[in-house]
Amino acid sequence: MIRVQREDFEIGAELDALTRDNPGVGGLCSFVGLVRDLHPDARTPDSESGEGRVHGEVRAMTLEHYPGMTEKMLRRIDAEAHRRWPLEASLVIHRYGRMEPGERIVLVATASAHRQAAFESCQFLIDWLKTKAPFWKLEETPDGGCWVDARVGDDAAAARWGRDDWAAE
């Protein structure tokens, strides 16, 4: 199941609803993405150690998306997860609009008889979502609005799960 919405979600309530009345579920895995307060460019070259990081640079973030195509891509990624793993249930909720640091952006949850399928498919869903679902982040910083660049690391993470024949990369 997928949902694209402006409003926040309650993690506990969503997970309960996902597995309720399904005693075949033995493992439930979830990932929650949050708004960070750190602009990537604010990092010093010494980012590995975390020294010299400037926090509090991002005041808010606005998630824009492509209504219609977003739902289409999320449904396709969700279907692909069900094709690859024996899942009892899955849920992807992605928010759009303006959010402040600490707010939840996305929830991915997968339920299966055993943990391995739940863990793997959960990671697969967030990895493919990040590189294929048409969302864009605009950060509000003291210097104005700044569109977040795609990360090379995200492409590599998505590529671990193989290629698809429908997303141009």
């Binding site: 998630l63 294929k132 048409p134 969302f135 864009w136 982040k137 660049d149």
Partner: peptide, 10 residues
């Protein structure tokens, strides 16, 4: 036809 930068959701 939609034109956009590489996506950055999640």
């Amino acid at each position: 036809v939609a034109l956009f930068p590489p996506v950055t959701g999640g």
